[in-house]
Design a protein around this nucleic acid. Structure first.
Lengths: 240, 240
DNA sequence: CCTCCGCGTTGACCCAGATCAAAGTTCAGG
DNA sequence: CCTGAACTTTGATCTGGGTCAACGCGGAGG
């Protein structure tokens, strides 16, 4: 198998990934892709690995190829809040800033395709199309962040949990048939992570999940595998 | 006084504003500016006016010339959350989407410079520099939104109020000397708005303000004019 | 096989902030 | 100057979710 092109003949962004890189591959011509591929690098990280520390210099961007990355902020006394979850094939990085205010950690086992900041920024100059795609992703993330602000500011614990499960279902249910009303997925986060994402405590998360289970809105096996027989019924709990 | 140029000779974006339009004027050449100025339109709205309803079509963008605009979402049962405050000279609009998920309302008396969506999008195609500036603003807003997520998810009522006052001070204190440790500004929001911004109730907002006053961290005249003798002391209350 | 350890659940109790109720303030309009 | 309406403050009480504590469970390592 050739290393420099995908099976369909388009150039690979990094030698070892077959997945396309949203917002990047599609925006570049053959020559640009090959140049970027030379500097890119595939990386695996197991769950819990810190990918980028708070206040660390950013010299690398990445695309999430599989798994879930959590972006978090920690207050000086240790309180933590997850501000975003990045799913494949999200772009990971903060253009126009060299220092991160966020820490990034692998929530599950993760594979990434990384490339140096400078290489991508050079390409952004050259390709307005690339910049436009990244701009769109930033706007999407802004929409999501605002959606989450409403959840954090005005929803009850039960509504937060329901909203969270819906969000996960939409992002990682493998059987992504939009018509189907049921869903079935593996939770990418521990109870502690869910709590940090929703501004709750582990105990409250656990109790609310128990309640949803008691009300037959979901069922959970092995603490991780969630089955939602009716997304509509779950949505009714999300309080929108 | 000529209507087509600023006092320094650069073209006006709209005939009646002398203020520059962040992210727009600077990115365009003379010819583009003149073209845009033809379609632009200055608009005043008094406090409380709804500028854009939830789920309304967006066919106009705007730049905030003065005053404060609040962007909010409302849940079906009436709970409301303000997701962002836009200060002059922020850009107001959501590129690449024709429908708003947010409502925009004038929090204070506001003046705007509006222009048709199509005109700006044409310019964005023509000027990568313009697009880049808007991209930067979107990234800045994303950073702010994430900052706010931490505030909403993990801070106490007292910390939320202190964070809010600091944010306002940074955005609208007219005597914006970064070295000075004191500040002095007029609150652009009612107690009800502050509550909707911080995910609290009016009563809690009022009590926390009273407490800050009792502790001599701030003083308030006429319910609106805030004096902060020491921003450092206020910052110590913000819990970062 | 057992034991340990990291997760998750459950129960009892508490408190920050919500809710309910009632006064004060401020200010536009008459 | 007076009046009313909108906004703000303050007090009393309640409650959702936090805190503290105990226990359950499953998988890795001996």
């Amino acid at each position: 198998m050739r290393k420099d092109v995908h099976t369909d003949g388009t150039p690979r962004l990094c030698a070892s990934c077959d997945a396309r890189h949203k917002g990047i591959c599609g925006a570049l011509d053959q020559e640009q892709l090959i140049a970027l591929a030379k500097t890119s690098h595939k990386q695996h990280a197991e769950s819990g690995t810190e990918l980028l520390g708070d206040a660390e210099r950013i010299d690398t961007y990445a695309v999430v190829l599989s798994g879930v990355v959590k972006l978090a902020k920690t207050l000086s006394d240790g309180r933590q809040q997850i501000v975003s979850l990045q799913f494949a094939p999200d772009f990971l990085g903060r253009p126009f800033k060299s220092e991160s205010e966020l820490s990034a950690e692998a929530a599950t086992d993760v594979s990434l395709c990384t490339f140096p900041k400078a290489a991508l920024e050079r390409l952004m100059q050259a390709s307005p199309e690339l910049e436009r795609r990244l701009y769109r992703q930033a706007l999407d993330e802004l929409d999501q962040a605002r959606e989450w602000i409403v959840t954090l500011g005005r929803k009850t614990a039960g509504e937060k949990i329901a909203s969270f499960l819906l969000m996960i279902a939409r992002n990682i249910d493998p059987s992504a048939d939009p018509d189907r009303d049921s869903a079935n997925f593996e939770l990418p986060l521990t109870r502690a992570d869910i709590a940090d994402f929703l501004g709750l405590t582990i105990e409250t998360v656990s109790r609310q999940l128990t309640r949803l289970r008691a009300d037959k809105v979901i069922s959970i096996e092995n603490n991780r595998n969630v089955v939602v027989p009716s997304l509509a019924r779950l949505e009714a709990r999300a309080g929108n």
